[in-house]
Amino acid sequence: MKGKKKTIFLAIYFGLLFLPIYWMINMSLRTNADILGTLTLYPEDPTFRNYVKIFTDSSWYSGYINSIIYVTINTLISLTVALPAAYAFSRYQFVGDKQIFFWLLTNRMAPSAVFLIPFFQLYSTIGLMDTHIAVALAHCLFNVPLAVWILEGFMSGIPREIDETAFIDGYSLPRFFITIFIPLIRAGVGVTAFFCFMFSWVELLFARTLTVTNAKPISAVMTRTISATGLDWGLLATAGVLTIVPGALVIWFVRNHMAKGFALGRV
């Protein structure tokens, strides 16, 4: 494809991408009666009533805070344990390495539906029910393997000679890892953090099962309100719009790490 065609293709694609989101924003700025009344392409009488309701009702906005807390804990745990493991898989051969790597991945393939009841029993037994850490730990089930997997891919793209040279220069493994290696794969770390954040942020089943009130995530608050008030399309759309905001901020922060790519061979 040539330059101009590319731009047109992208523009059309992004337009289609925005359309359903735009429609939700459109809904969020209207009252329920207005939505059900007539179909208009833009809110003719925009109102922020739905937004005001969410920001002033603590049962609504605490959902956002809870979600952000457990997602952050989960991302930190996932990155901390996955970085050394990914390095091991990328650089060393050890007994059972391939088997362990694949076993880790299998944990992303388990249908979460039936894990619900065992998880509920497990976290009740150890007294972690309705805490942020419970949800963060439960999300490790799929995020830690994913982090190892993505990081391993990025690390294997870095030539081994860099490690060897550093060790000859007298670097210890931890010092080399922190001062040289992690900066080299910062794009990968950014991408991994993004994916951990994303999968933890959008997950609903575990987060809803493991929380009652103290750590209830926004996605659970949304479903509860739908069933309680019938279908308030405007309020629902508003909550949906607001669930995009934290994620959009995160991608804004990691975009440079992704955009720069890696400076392979230009160390």
């Binding site: 991408l17 359903p20 989101i21 942020w201 609903l204 996605s219 949304m222 994620g247 959009a248 992704m258």
Partner: peptide, 25 residues
């Protein structure tokens, strides 16, 4: 940056909201 942020948008919407968006749409 614009493309990356745009592409990431649908991925960061909770899954039940995705269903809701399309149900409305």
């Amino acid at each position: 940056s614009f493309s990356l942020v745009t592409l990431a948008l649908p991925l960061l919407i909770p899954w039940n909201t995705i269903g809701t968006i399309w149900m409305i749409f």
